[in-house]
């Protein structure tokens, strides 16, 4: 069982992105395009939010 937070987050992003690209798009090309956008938005967005929170004390 993985305990690395980033890995688990990336896995979650992967499942979400695949699911919604299948649900919202038809055709392989559109699905891949949406998958990439969603995955990057989730992972990069999470990293961006993490860095924004970095200056604040825990």
């Amino acid at each position: 069982m993985p305990t690395d937070h980033f890995l688990i987050m990336a896995l979650y992003a992967l499942l979400i992105s695949v699911f919604f690209s299948l649900l919202w798009r038809s055709g392989a090309r559109e699905r891949v395009a949406l998958f990439v956008k969603l995955f990057l938005a989730l992972v990069v967005g999470a990293l961006a939010v993490a860095w924004l929170m970095y200056p604040f004390p825990s």
Binding site: M1, I8, L11, L15, V18, F19, L22
Partner: peptide, 20 residues
């Protein structure tokens, strides 16, 4: 085809939730 993929994705998500 999409049905099989949905089954895999949702089941995997659920099973991972249990394993976590």
């Amino acid at each position: 085809g999409t049905a099989v993929l949905y089954a895999i994705i949702v089941s995997a998500t659920f099973v991972l939730g249990l394993s976590f």
